[in-house]
Design a protein around this nucleic acid. Structure first.
Length: 421
RNA sequence: CGGGGCGUAGCGCAGUUGGCUAGCGCGCAACGUUCGGGACGUUGAGGUCGACGGUUCAAAUCCGUCCGCCCCGACCA
């Protein structure tokens, strides 16, 4: 991709009305744009990151035996009445009437829709278990939006649902999802704290939250300094109190962002919606359900929150919008050689499976360097007359700031090694 | 939904005890000079001062109502 032919509107100054680093940087690096409070467009660079994260999620969900589908955003209120959640969630639902005067809402979550779908196709225990997931926009009428895409009215979520014939099956699927989540967040460059949690309006008994400690979190937790105990702050432990688990360490307070939440739902929805199957013993039973969510757009904010410096974003390689940025410097003489080499690297690296961005804009060196630091591509290949006169080009590693001069004929190989391609 | 802050050009801001044609920096357009860490000069385009109403000879500035955005809290599948 050539920058001059792409759309990366970077901002030099910090936008007004932003406090969170991730909010500022997602705006400044041209990742997202606010339409109105809590409603964001994803610009090309932001969309690339989103797709990288989605692909990681897809790989791990598929590996865990889940099948991807895509459910509607438009839901008839009739469906929500079946579980009574039209009342429970009435404050967060965007509700309206369609042209035929049917009461409708924009889906804030999809338990009712998926249960309705599955019950129509499954009659026998032989068809279970089933695990389905989707990556889709959710709509919640948040009175208080927060920190840009961290808490928005319209956001992207991965939601998965498991259907089992018995509790043992549910526990097995739950465990698989639990393990998949750990891998997903790790691949996104995030260290998570896993917490046993309340099921809230979702219902069910067992539930775990995947939290990332960050200054802009919405939930406070306490962690033990000497064992791996974590707990919600609501449980009443004070900072500095003795750990209830090991009795030795003192509790430290942390603020966290919730990125994932998984639930063992049981039969709450299947009973209400009559999603039943005929078991081996000839008896009709409600399906045992679990649901598993990840706030995908929120993951972007968490990554930026954890991976940045005063110059900008530092993308972990697994989610970076590009692998390499080639930065040719304009020059009075030698311009042709620089351009030729740039195009050659671009073609060769692309052919080798790298996503490459070329900053071919006729801008000053300083500006291009600063923009490169801001958008945070892991590796930068600088081609300038000064080094080229010695037959060298420069590779800069965004994370460490390390700069390596390499022979121009070895740059491609070196980069492929660094990228592990 | 309670409390606080803010709203002047695409972005960041000044101007607010009422007073001339509303200003600065960045960005943008043109030309020239530059070219390894946000270059320089010259010229230029760009504004319902958030909206509506009021006070006044005169309102970005004072008063009222509303709208929008941000932060804290309540809420949060």
């Amino acid at each position: 991709m050539y920058w001059s032919n792409y759309f990366i509107p970077t901002l030099k100054e910090i936008p007004i009305g932003t406090e969170a680093v991730s909010h500022q940087l997602s705006l400044r690096a041209g990742l997202v744009h606010m339409l109105t409070s809590g409603v964001y467009s994803y610009l090309p660079l932001g969309l690339r990151v989103l797709k990288r994260i989605e692909d990681i999620i897809r790989e791990e969900m598929n590996a865990a035996g889940a099948s991807e589908l895509f459910l509607p955003c438009l839901h008839p209120m009739e469906l929500w009445k079946q579980t009574g959640r039209d009342e429970v969630l009435k404050d967060v639902m965007f509700k309206f009437q369609d042209g035929r005067k049917r009461p409708m809402c924009l889906g804030p979550t999809h338990e009712e829709v998926i249960t309705d779908l599955v019950k129509g196709f499954v009659q026998s225990y032989r068809q279970l278990p089933i695990v389905l997931y989707q990556i889709q926009t959710k709509f919640r009428d948040e009175l208080r939006t927060r920190f840009g895409i961290v808490r928005a009215c319209e956001f992207i979520m991965k939601d998965a649902y498991s259907f089992d014939r018995d509790k043992a099956g549910l526990e097995k699927n739950y465990q698989r999802m639990f393990e998949a989540y750990k891998i997903i967040f790790k691949r996104c460059g995030l260290e998570t704290v896993i917490l046993e949690a309340d099921s809230g309006a979702m219902g069910g008994d067992v539930s775990h939250e995947f939290m990332v400690p960050a200054p802009i979190g919405e939930d406070a937790i306490v962690s033990c300094a000497s064992c791996e105990f974590h707990g919600g702050i609501k449980e009443g432990q004070d900072e500095g109190a003795n750990c209830p688990k090991c009795q030795k360490g003192s509790l430290q307070k942390q603020v966290t962002i919730e990125l994932g939440h998984i639930f063992q739902l049981g039969t709450k929805y299947s009973e209400a919606q009559k999603a039943v199957f005929l078991d081996e013993d000839g008896k009709q039973k409600p399906m045992i359900m679990g649901c598993y969510g990840i706030g995908v757009s929120r993951v972007i904010a968490a990554i930026i929150e954890k991976h940045n410096d005063d110059k900008g974003i530092i993308w972990p390689s697994g989610v970076a919008p590009f692998d390499v940025e080639i930065l040719p410097l304009s020059s009075k003489d030698g311009g042709e050689a620089i351009k030729g080499l740039t195009d050659q690297y671009y073609a060769e690296l692309t052919k080798s499976g790298c996503d490459v961005l070329v900053d071919d804009r006729p801008e000053s060196a300083g500006r291009k360097f600063n923009d490169a630091d801001l958008i945070g591509i892991p590796y930068r290949l600088t081609i300038g007359q000064r080094n080229l006169a010695q037959g060298k080009v420069e590779i800069k590693i965004r994370e460490t700031g390390e700069m390596i001069l390499v022979d121009k004929n070895e740059a491609k190989q070196k980069l492929l090694e660094m990228l592990g391609k």
